[in-house]
């Protein structure tokens, strides 16, 4: 691309291809300076990030009262799925009963998705990788192993894809109920094709509800926003006891830890 100073906009020209190339370059830059899943840390860097922002600093105080540590997740549009996946796999290290319950659900999920019309041969790779990495928890039982899985780009992304497919399958199966949450007159199939299945599409409430319902995993999200008052928390599904905690800052999810 030309340098900004020499740039003259030409209305006749289509800049979309160049825009896409530039977006890819920005993504590469982000990838170069941030782990997919970062180390557990205290809130010092969070304070620094928002040091000139009074509204957020107050919310960070609330966060500190409720949690001890957090883990940053790369901001690539997949952060909700990656944070959810990692935090849950990590929680399974200490919970063999829950591991068995989930292993059974994950095993059966493939046939359910095929019944819903997902093509078997495009689904298989993602399911295989997902099961292989899940099963490592039982044999390996180390946080280093889970970190390695989620920081290996290919493996990590395949897990994200499979979680996305679980959400897509759940929403299509329960279309009658969830259809009313969609705006813009899209069908559930269109919504899933455009907002759930593709990598990099950000998650909304509907993705979170669907993933927690489909997997029976309870997640609490603490919302940091500019609003007055205290930090607001939502538990999905309502009235259950969370096994993982996520921090939401506008457009992004990280993982929170009570200890």
């Amino acid at each position: 691309m030309e340098k900004a100073a020499d740039f003259h906009y030409n209305a006749e020209q289509n800049y979309d291809e160049e825009t896409i190339i530039q977006q890819r370059e920005i993504e590469k830059e982000i990838a170069g300076c941030q782990d997919l899943v970062g180390p557990k840390e205290d809130f010092t860097t969070l304070d620094r990030e928002f040091e000139h922002d009074v509204a957020f600093l107050k919310k960070i105080q609330d966060v500190k009262q409720r949690y001890r540590r957090f883990r940053r997740i790369r901001a690539d549009g997949n952060c909700f799925f990656r944070a959810f996946g990692f935090a849950y796999f990590e929680s399974l290290l200490k919970n063999p009963d829950e591991f068995k319950r989930f292993q059974d659900i994950a095993l059966k999920s493939k046939d359910e998705l095929i019944t819903l019309g997902f093509p078997q041969f495009t689904l298989e790779d993602f399911h295989e990788t997902f099961m292989q990495e899940l099963n490592k928890i039982e044999t390996n039982k180390s946080i280093e192993g889970v970190l390695q899985t989620f920081n290996d780009c290919g493996t990590s992304d395949y897990i994200v894809v499979y979680l996305r497919l679980i959400v897509s399958g759940f929403l299509q199966k329960n279309e009658d109920f969830y259809q009313s949450f969609l705006d813009g007159g899209r069908t559930m199939r269109e919504f899933c094709n455009q907002e759930v299945e593709p990598m990099g599409r950000e998650s909304d409430h509907i993705h979170i509800i669907a993933l927690s319902q489909a997997t029976g995993i309870c997640v609490q999200v603490d919302y940091m926003d500019r609003g007055d008052g205290n930090l607001i928390s939502h538990v999905f599904p309502e009235d259950s006891s969370p096994s993982i905690y996520l921090l939401y800052k506008p457009g992004h999810y990280d993982i929170l830890y009570k200890e």
Partner: peptide
């Protein structure tokens, strides 16, 4: 094209790339 990569502003109902396409 994945959604978001919109070279020519496709209709909102248009089928997009996702990892289960082929």
């Amino acid at each position: 094209h994945a959604p978001g990569d919109d070279p020519l502003g496709y209709e909102s109902s248009a089928e997009r790339w996702s990892p289960v396409q082929s």
